[in-house]
Structures are given as C-alpha cells and as structure tokens.
Write a protein that binds this DNA or RNA. Structure first.
Lengths: 146, 146
DNA sequence: TTGACAGTGGGAAATTGTGGGATAGAATTG
DNA sequence: CAATTCTATCCCACAATTTCCCACTGTCAA
C-alpha cells in the first residue's frame, strides 16, 4: 500500500497547472487519477486504487432511492479524471480551482492513501482553528501511534 | 467498467443538438445509445451495455400483472435511440426536450454507468432542495467514500 | 564543475464546442 | 401523380480552449 505523507507547496500557473510533488509522483501512475472537491474547502487527489474503492462504494447505492440519487449527483458534480503531463504536472479543472479558492500557492498534504490540496491562504486560516497541538488531539484516540 | 463522472454544461442549438462532453464521448460508441425520460424531470442517456441491462430487467417483469404492464408502457413511451454525429453531438427528440424543459443550457451529470441530462434552470432549482452539502449527506451512509 | 532532477513558463499543435449551409428523404398539397 | 415544403442528417468552418512539447532556472550530489 502506498504512503502519501508530508506537506509540499507548489505554485499554480495561469493555465491551471501545478507540479505534483516529486515524492508523490514517484508513487503515482501518469493516468487514471481523479480529483474532487473535498472537506472544508480542500480538494482530494485519488490514485486509481483508491478511486476504485470510492466508486464501488457509490455504485453499490440502490438508484431507486431518491436520496441515493442525490448523493451520487452531488458527488459526481465535482469530480474529474486527471493525468500527469510530461513535466509532472496536473491541470486542475477551473471549477475546482474556484471552489477551493486557489490562486497562486497550493499546499499538498499526504493523507496516506490519497492527497489533499489546499489554497495556501485557506490552509493557513484553517490551521489556526484546528486542534492547536497534535499531542492534545491524540490523547483521545486509542490506536497506537507512538 | 466505464465511469461517467463529473458535471458538464453545454448548449442546445435550434436544431435540438448538444455536444456530448468530450470526456464522456471518449467512452461511448457512436451508435446504439438510448435516451429516455428520467427521474425528477431529467433525461437519462444510456450506453449500449447499460441499456441492455435495463431492457432485460424490464423484459423480465411478468406481463400478467397490470402494474408491470403500466411500467413497461410508461417506460417505452419515452425512450429513443440516439447516435453521436460527426461533430460529437446528439440530437435530442423534441418531445423529450419539451418534457425536460430544456431551452438553452444543458447540464450533463455522470452517474457512473449512465448520464443524466438536465435543463440548467431545473437543475439549479433542484439543487437547492437537495441535500445542501455532500458532507452532510454522506454522514448517514455506511460506505467509505473518503 | 558537471550532470541529473525538480519546478516553472510559454509557444505550437490538436481537440473541443458551436453555428450554419447543403443534401436527401419524407410528408404535404394541388 | 407531380410539385413543393418540411425535416433530419451530413458536412464544412471557425473560435476558443486544452494538451503537448521545448526551454530555462535552481538545487543537490558526485
């Protein structure tokens, strides 16, 4: 299983492209990736295997139920396939750039099996309201992360 | 398996034609597609394989039950074959344009194995009454889509 | 110092979306 | 039954966007 970890900052150019951090790129294929609207105004980049899991989850929802249809529509609305170009970049669809508030600097955060992308300003703002220290946060959970 | 995913907006011309989003077109054959009246005032575009499933499902309904006959009639009434022309467009039958309220802008939503088409205004209206955010909607379901 | 790699910018080429004319067949009318 | 109109389909054209490719810079290690 892949481990996408760490924080990387790259710049978005006028054509909506960003370099994928080399460390992540080494673990990723050039094709079959998907990017979508994530939580709290971020975007999420899925490697193919992860995307397949997510898709299968969605596909398992019975379509004859209205709420399920709404979930699929809502989800589908902001997800797109992306490829890595010859220079190691992805082009982020313009509507996703807009809803995530990206302008120049983009923060990549590894989430183990997927990758989160943030507009730098938005990420900085969110960081404040987040649990101030990691130590404090992990007191509450039982798993062993030491 | 195909993944029709994402939202795309295109315009209907005076002849009742719309470009099929290139992303979908790459996964579709030029012939053997079907379009029909869908749920909530939308239309649904089926690729051949999906249509075959749907048709077989219908065909399996016992005809000696009145309700089944009604379902088949209702279904049959508003379904048509469509082809993709040399410019990557489909012509939407005029009665389907009418019942779906299409005028100028059409929203395409990928539903994994089929594609939904909406009159833009109607889609916008529906979106409001729909679960307001994806985050909220998926809290209730068990599948892992993160 | 040099070579490899990483990140960035920009031009050229291909693709995409859209409008409109031309042609052929169906329908309508005298 | 012929002439005309209408409709649907095919094809050409063009603008705009997207994708592909080449080039430059800076960093790090040998």
């Amino acid at each position: 299983m892949n481990d996408y970890i760490g924080k990387h900052i790259h710049t978005l150019d006028e054509k909506g492209r960003v370099s994928v951090p080399a460390q992540f790129r080494r673990q990723l294929p050039r094709e079959g990736l998907f990017i979508r609207k994530g939580m709290e105004g971020s975007l999420i980049l899925y490697p193919p295997e992860k995307w397949e899991n997510v898709r299968d989850g969605l596909a398992s929802l019975p379509r004859n139920i209205r709420k399920n249809r709404d979930i699929i529509r809502e989800f589908s609305q902001y997800i797109r396939p992306v490829n890595i170009d010859g220079q190691g970049r992805i082009t982020i669809p313009s509507d996703l750039i807009e809803i995530s508030g990206m302008t120049h600097e983009i923060v990549f955060i590894g989430l183990l099996d997927s990758i989160e992308l943030w507009a730098a300003q938005r990420y900085a703002g969110r960081e404040k309201e987040q649990v101030s220290s990691l130590e404090e946060a992990i007191e509450g959970i039982e798993i062993d992360i030491y």
